[in-house]
Design a binder for these strands. Structure first.
Lengths: 341, 341
DNA sequence: TACGTTTCCGAAAACCTTTTATTTTGCTTC
DNA sequence: GAAGCAAAATAAAAGGTTTTCGGAAACGTA
């Protein structure tokens, strides 16, 4: 038999012990209204003695605020949503706000179900985190609570979204290669139907154009996000321009495969070919030979920032539009100046 | 200015529309007590018309049940806790129970903080998921709610824990190699201070002993969980026994590194050496050349099972002890019968 | 003393639902 | 038609907090 749960201590007990009414006790505890310093101290002392914890359900019932937000993730089997999610959890959890986790697993129907239950539970706000940077349908219409989108932006510009700035990020990556002295730079990336792939290509091309350099091979090599594709793409790149001296890859997996295949074809990395990856997926980027110079999207920070904005929106200071968060180049050994001949 | 949140429809409105008292409305909606079929229908019709959703806060306040559980993860930066977590979320979310996510980030102090806030929020139960299979301190003592531990077991045998059965799993892995016709089997694994490493070694040795086979190299090769260590360990294994024809690795990362280094030293996988990994970490196991035969710990299932047991415990049907969940061999191409000479 | 002003405190309503105890209704039987 | 009884319905309490509003006390001024 489970032990009888002891009756919790209520504000009544505190008030009684302090010798005041519950109204005064409440005001004293919450620092609201007019209450003499001396009685406030008495109330606090009583609360401490009884180790009083206010019942959040009762409080929420009257205030209408649950200090709870919903975290709706569309598909967390992937690996991009997770850090964003954890960053958001971190931001809320260190405050007084609790996070209700809902994983829709890529199922729109399930997402609707979760949305209803979250609304029924009277959450104060919602943070929607996606698994790719492709825009996703808005759910904010007619919702009585604020929503922010993280990683995958909403397709409604009136919503507020936080995404990594892939255009600037890949620009930085390419400028880094140029600064190292590389001049024949190729770009291998994922499928063209990914916003991430297109934006990274855009940023890379812009940086090359600004520097007056051509793209090695003449065109962006789109394919898949896999290591396998990286290996295959190595051949394509080397055949298209045997003199290629740098490759900017759209993901660390691609970079890992490309490095492997390039080495098998007798090219040294970074001496002959400098390689820069994307994602800073550490289990991979730290384990390749050589360790990978790569672009980190600061996903945890992105999640935290989104959470902070949701918080602001709950308090009435809402923003809107797509916020692009800066990426950060992590320098390891796969990109260096060309070896002297 | 935010739109004034419309006053939610309450059971009062439903009762009024149906022409009954709120007590009858409540009983009709919850299927409790004596209420005529005809009036029950009227109440349901009214509820549907107003699209009534009962306020869970008010309900919880009176019933004492919040239909909410806490998910306390000790360190989710790693990758083992995540699937367990998602499995648990899945089990609860498809019911009526919501999941409060708390990531203590390996900090005992933060864990205490979360524990207090979860208790204050009157969660019905707690599921604690760890990042390794090493036992962790119990938090169940004197808690008024049931707790189950997933992946990392509690150090108190009176608690209930769910862990992968690594002993049986690695036994299966080794038996698979034996069945393929391998006779000189080595075992490379992680640091000896990990329970996972020790248990996997134990299972492997037991299987060899049962088959009357020696361990190639004479001793288990403990090291680290990394790919780098796998590469290094390949040398050790090949030097210790140049005729080695199979390696059972304690993780997929080790296996990936070992395969790579073995190939560089002229051994073909699986023709000359069969390799079996552990974890079925798909981004790795599907991308190695050849794809990895590996042991899957069914972590999502483990999480779901733990959640179901928590649910049972909340309803008064508690269990205790450590439950070892079966693993499952995923067969790909890295382990095959020896090539004919 | 009468009166106005400030400062502090408390009674009671409100939040919304479940549940207990009580009353009403409808039916059967004599 | 009355009595008795089971079934159905309701009034009211309970759950714990916040908040509004009115009242009391304290104090100063005429």
């Amino acid at each position: 038999m489970p032990p009888e749960r002891p009756r919790a201590v209520t504000i009544n007990d505190v008030a009684a012990l302090a010798g005041v009414s519950i109204a005064t006790a409440s005001k004293a505890l919450n620092g609201r209204g007019q209450v003499r310093a001396e009685t406030r101290d008495r109330v606090f002392a009583a609360a401490r003695e009884l180790s009083f914890q206010p019942n959040p359900l009762a409080r929420s019932l009257v205030t209408g605020q649950t200090r709870t937000v919903g975290l709706l993730t569309s598909d967390s089997v992937g690996r991009f949503g997770i850090p964003v999610m954890l960053g958001a959890e971190d931001a809320f959890g260190s405050g007084e706000t609790a996070v209700l986790l809902c994983d829709a697993r890529g199922d729109a129907f399930r997402e609707q179900h979760y949305l209803r239950t979250l609304l029924a539970r009277r959450v104060d706000g919602l943070i929607v985190v996606g698994e790719s940077t492709d825009p996703r349908p808005s759910i904010s219409r007619d919702l009585p609570i604020p929503v922010v989108y993280a990683y995958a932006p909403s397709d409604d510009p009136a919503d507020v979204s936080f995404v990594p700035d892939d255009v600037a990020g890949s620009g930085d990556a390419v400028r880094h290669l140029i600064a190292l002295g590389r001049r024949r730079i190729a770009h291998v990336t994922g499928p063209t139907h990914y916003t991430a792939a297109r934006e990274r290509a855009e940023g890379a091309l812009a940086a090359l154009q600004t520097a007056g350099l051509p793209l090695s091979g003449g065109r962006v090599v789109y394919g898949a996000w896999s290591q396998r594709w990286g290996r295959h793409a190595a051949e394509i790149v080397l055949n298209a321009d045997p003199e290629v001296d740098a490759v900017f890859c759209g993901s660390d997996q691609i970079a890992a495969g490309l490095i492997e295949a390039a080495r098998e074809r007798g090219r040294r990395v970074p001496d002959d070919i400098a390689v820069v990856g994307y994602d800073n997926w550490e289990v991979l980027s730290e384990e390749t030979r050589p360790p990978l110079t790569t672009m980190d999207m600061n996903l945890e920070l992105l999640g935290r920032t989104a959470a902070q904005h949701l918080f602001a929106a709950i308090e009435g200071r809402a923003t809107s539009g797509i916020h692009r968060m800066p990426c950060r180049l992590v320098i390891r050994d796969s990109a260096a100046p060309p070896a002297l001949h």
